Simulated assay, not measured.
Amino acid sequence: MADIGTRFFTWLNGEKVGEDQFGNLYYVAKKRASDKAAGQREKRWVVYKGEPEASKVPPAWHAWLHHTIKDLPGEADLRAQPWQKEHQPNLTGTELAYRPPGHVLKGGKRDRATGDYQAWRPE
């Protein structure tokens, strides 16, 4: 949920242009003569549904937000490819975060070297 300042700014200055499958809303700044005269790019932003997390922005919308593509993503752009995985939130700092073998929070014990490794020694 966006804070009150972001919602107020968006209400005053934004024009909604789309929504993604996660419920995030995408906006552009309302057209002003001064912006066009100055040659500025249009301002684009996202208002996240729920916790603000940048990894929830699908690739096509990310490209649009960063002016990589000019036009809004179409249905074909938003369809997931068969090799793409479903979104998973960033788990860093949570109990579900990845911890490799030997991590201090996973016992701190590493397997012994198997002998296929030879340490480098300077001559």
Results as ranks from 00 to 15, higher is better:
I69G: 04
G102Q: 06
T68F: 13
G115E: 04
Y117P: 01
P59Y: 06
L91F: 06
L72E: 15
R99C: 04
K70D: 12
Q118N: 12
H67Y: 06
R79N: 06
T114R: 14
D77C: 02
W64R: 03
A63N: 12
K70S: 09
D71V: 07
D111S: 10
D77T: 02
G107Q: 08
K56M: 03
R79D: 04
Q81M: 08
K85E: 12
A63M: 11
Y98D: 07
S55D: 08
T94F: 02
H62S: 12
A63P: 05
P100L: 00
Y98P: 03
A119E: 15
G74P: 03
I69T: 14
L105H: 11
V57A: 00
D77S: 06
E86N: 09
P58M: 00
P82W: 10
G115A: 02
L78V: 01
R110N: 11
T94L: 00
P82E: 07
R99P: 03
W61G: 00
E75W: 05
H66C: 05
H103N: 09
W83D: 10
K85I: 04
K106N: 04
G74F: 04
Q81L: 12
N90F: 02
G108F: 07
E75V: 09
P89M: 01
K85M: 10
V57R: 03
E95I: 05
H103C: 00
T114K: 15
P58Q: 03
V104T: 11
Q81E: 12
V57F: 03
H62W: 15
W64T: 01
G74A: 10
L78P: 07
A113Y: 12
R110Y: 10
G107T: 08
G108H: 11
G107L: 07
P58E: 04
L78W: 08
W64V: 00
W61I: 00
D77A: 07
P59A: 02
P59N: 02
R99F: 09
A97F: 05
L96I: 05
L78N: 05
H87C: 01
A63V: 02
A80F: 13
D71N: 14
P58H: 06
D116P: 04
Y98N: 10
Q88L: 06
I69A: 03
T114A: 10
K56V: 00
V104M: 12
P58D: 01
E95P: 08
K56R: 15
W64S: 00
V57I: 14
E75P: 08
Q84E: 15
D71K: 13
L65S: 05
A63S: 13
Q81C: 02
D116M: 07
G102T: 06
K70H: 09
A60G: 05
A80S: 13
P101S: 03
L72Q: 13
E95T: 10
W83A: 04
E95Y: 09
T94S: 10
P100T: 05
A97P: 03
G115C: 01
L91R: 14
K70P: 01
G108S: 09
Q118G: 02
